[in-house]
Design a protein around this nucleic acid. Structure first.
Lengths: 221, 221
DNA sequence: GATCCCAAGATTGTTAACAATCAGATATCA
DNA sequence: TGATATCTGATTGTTAACAATCTTGGGATC
């Protein structure tokens, strides 16, 4: 199995919430799972760590990254900066075909939302933001935004409210309407509001480390 | 020697133009140079490749990356997008101490320019742009900008005009004046112009591969 | 009953040897 | 001479074994 494929596989498992923040990634297990040598896995884990998707602890292996509150805020600030700045570019390049692609994507989002699979729903929602960058076509920006979306997935997994009610496809529909009107200022404003809404749907408060040591919990009794 | 240090060392050698685009990076040589096992080097080279600082060719090793013209244009477009969007943030956070740091940096740039060491001059100039991001303090943005500056170094090394006459410290002085006036629109405009100037100082035309096979050149005679 | 200590097992980190591949040199033939 | 095939050395890719380190569980001690 190719190294790039293993990277993709683990990456999408994390972005798709099949691996939650904090989960340990044991080299031997992964090596056996993908039928490759342990060295391949080590190399992939290094790369993922460089992307802030996993965290490496010396002599103690890799875990799925658990973003700090500060990191979460910085990621969202970066998204606001870049995605809002992208608005004029999007309006500039968007043609009828682009609009059709965007609308098709929102329909897909609605389907995912009604499927009651939160991970799938979020994946579709994030795909919309990446798609906007893809329309502009700058691969550097696309790569940045992909990274930010992956990290957003981790952030959501770590800090999501229990009582979520996102409906981001509605916000996305509004964005499309501004693009169709070629209103870049309106698009920028709506994008800013949308991103602020997403962030405010989180509980960005540092929690105490999840205690796995049951003994210390029940010691009092 | 720590792996992070080796990464830093090679990275700064490339960013500082001591290693030109296209230069081969032989694992054994690097391993001996840094007094470590070859595996360490392999791992570092993978990471550098992921950063687009080196290019890996299967079974043929690593070379210092030689950005394409398209890549160069995309990097500059990304810089315009991000650095211009950063203007309001910079004006918002900049205090007297920030201005002092910026002015000190420009003085350093002037010294470097008079030293007639083009690599050192460029390094100082790039440092100014990174410093602006550092003032804002968002580590995600700082990382993005660092990456963009490194890639800009490679682009300059590959596509610089022979008759350079940058004087970027003058443009930087102008930026500082806008910051001092708290004029974020002016800062944004000046930044855009500055970045366009830098790009137009390059010759962004794809060249034929440098021919190392002298025989094919002199075959006609 | 709580705390400390130590050993065993599990896991990661490192190394050196071997295999596969490529580039350049040499040999072969028209 | 020029084109093609083959060989050789250099370099990269892979593997398995070994070393170092951490975690866990049990027992000794207070």
């Amino acid at each position: 199995m190719d190294e790039a494929l293993i990277y993709q596989e683990i990456h999408s498992a994390i972005a798709g919430r099949r691996l939650q923040p904090g989960v340990r990634l044991v080299e031997d297990q992964l090596a056996e799972t993908f039928g490759v040598n342990r060295m391949r896995i080590r190399s992939v884990l290094r790369t993922l760590a460089h992307d802030k998707v996993v965290t490496l602890h010396r002599n103690r292996g890799a875990v799925v990254a658990h973003p700090t509150v500060r990191e979460a805020k910085e990621v969202f600030a970066a998204r606001r900066l870049i995605e809002v700045a992208l608005a004029p570019e999007i309006v500039r390049v968007a043609d009828d075909e682009s609009l059709a692609r965007l609308r098709a994507h929102v329909r897909e989002e609605r389907r995912c939302e009604s499927s009651n699979d939160r991970a799938r729903e979020l994946h579709a929602s994030h795909g919309f933001h990446t798609l906007l960058a893809e329309l502009v076509g700058n691969r550097v920006i696309i790569a940045f935004l992909r990274e930010l979306m992956t990290r957003s997935s981790l952030i959501t997994a770590a800090y999501e409210r229990p009582d979520v009610s996102s409906c981001s496809h509605k916000a996305h529909g509004e964005l499309i309407r501004f693009i169709a009107k070629r209103d870049s200022a309106g698009l920028a404003g709506a994008m800013l509001q949308h991103l602020q809404q997403i962030e405010s749907d989180l509980i960005l408060v540092e929690r105490a480390e999840v205690v796995t040591d049951l003994r210390s919990i029940f010691a009092r009794r």
